[in-house]
């Protein structure tokens, strides 16, 4: 997996998918075009301010609202390397895992990280490192099935691999 290291952009609770990608931009499904409007419902200049590798850090229920996969696509294509939140809305959670956008639930990190902090996420070692504050947080491991989805690089790659190996069971 690509190294996750960048600056934190911090948001409140209940960031909804209309804020991540307003519906007026849903007349396209091109990830690159969507990326130009990432977070436009809350900060129209977001994509001009961020650098590739930066992280979004948010509170409860990140990604609530519509099922639009345009939201995680926009975030991923904009160059955001990971989203850390206290909790994720369930469809956003599925979508992110399915398309291979790294997301991490960590209440304490989401609370303590300040805007602009330099954050590293080491998924394999299961930790978040806040270089600006010199703090580390343990990340709870995903259930085994999800780990396999993530390792495969998303749902469709997982299905492809399962079909080839003729084992397409969840356990």
């Amino acid at each position: 997996m690509k190294r996750i290291l960048g600056k934190a952009w911090k948001y409140r609770d209940n960031i909804n998918t209309d804020e991540i990608i307003p519906a007026k931009y849903l007349n396209t499904s091109d990830p690159k075009e969507l990326a130009q409007h990432c977070m436009a419902g809350i900060d129209e200049d977001f994509v001009r301010k961020i650098s590739s590798g930066d992280l979004i850090v948010a509170g409860e229920n990140f990604g609530c609202g519509s099922s639009r996969e345009h939201a995680p696509w926009a975030i991923k294509e904009a160059g955001i390397s990971c989203v850390i939140a206290k909790t994720f809305a369930r469809i956003f959670f599925r979508n992110a895992i399915n398309i291979g956008l790294p997301i991490v639930e960590c209440r304490q990190a989401a609370e303590e990280i300040q805007p602009g902090d330099t954050i590293e996420v080491d998924v394999d070692a299961g930790k978040i490192i806040n270089h600006s504050q010199g703090k580390e947080y343990k990340i709870a491991a995903y259930p085994p099935f999800m780990q396999r989805l993530i390792a495969a690089g998303g749902l469709l790659n997982y299905i492809k691999a399962s079909q080839t190996s003729c084992e397409n069971k969840i356990s």
């Binding site: 099922s67 996969e69 995680p72 469809i91 599925r94 979508n95 399915n98 398309i99 749902l155 469709l156």
Partner: peptide, 8 residues
Amino acid sequence: VGSTDLAA
């Protein structure tokens, strides 16, 4: 669900 789930 999202679009990738639908595709699956």
